[in-house]
Amino acid sequence: MDTLSLDTFDIRAYLREDLLPHFMCPGCGHGIALRALLWAVHERGIPKDRLAVVCGIGCSGRVGAYIDANTYHTTHGRPLAFATGLALARPDLEVVVITGDGDCLAIGGNHLIHACRRNLNMTCLMLNNEIYGMTGGQVSPTTGGGRLTSTTPYGNAEPTFDACALAIAAGAGFVGRGMTLQLPALKTLIGEGLAHPGFSFIEAISDCTEIFGRKNDLGSAPEIILRQKSGMRPDTYGNIVDRPFQAKAMRIGVLGRNDRPEYGAAYRAAVAARIAP
């Protein structure tokens, strides 16, 4: 087949196959996002021994457990804090943080802005499924206006966060957004994030079929994933209450680059300058 590339990527080489099938619900987008990450890791040629994946709590936190590499399951909202220590102590590792919208923006929101501010070399992959899936379907900072969740039985009236705008404003080195529906594009985006020497923040639009999809009557898994392209998320970001956050539609792709000095290198240089005579 001339259309097929000879560069082989078999995701099973990067998975703990004895843990599969994974615990995610049928149609959950997190598995697709994990494939995008591992594909990007494969393309960048990062050996498994040099890859360190740090996860928080939630459905997204369990994603890392299936990766056959150095993985670290931490406390709710704190994967960025743990990863900061790891990346400072072991600059030879490729540190990747997998976190969810609630984990990253609500419980760990403070850690996110300071990780962006420091610009330490790591890649933060935020899986945005608009809900706290594992803990019972509570409203999250990215839940769209009017959406039904277990804590918003009359529809969500809270303004919605644009995570990428937040990361850009806080000074992240590389900011992008992709969707699981467009897997090769998301893979390329994550690859660029891994390559960037600084803090890379990538928002992957994922789906919650069983808890968010069912509660909001969004249909079957294929219908939900197709909506990523045709209006579900633009509506999410468009129907928000606060003007400053308002956007006409959700933007996809590389949203921000900032070539500030990387914190780890700057810190080591400062220490060396102080210690050396």
Partner: peptide, 13 residues
């Protein structure tokens, strides 16, 4: 293969 969330599908040559 790409969109299978459960890694259940593989295309082999």
């Amino acid at each position: 293969e790409w969109l299978c969330p459960d890694f259940a599908v593989r295309v082999l040559d």
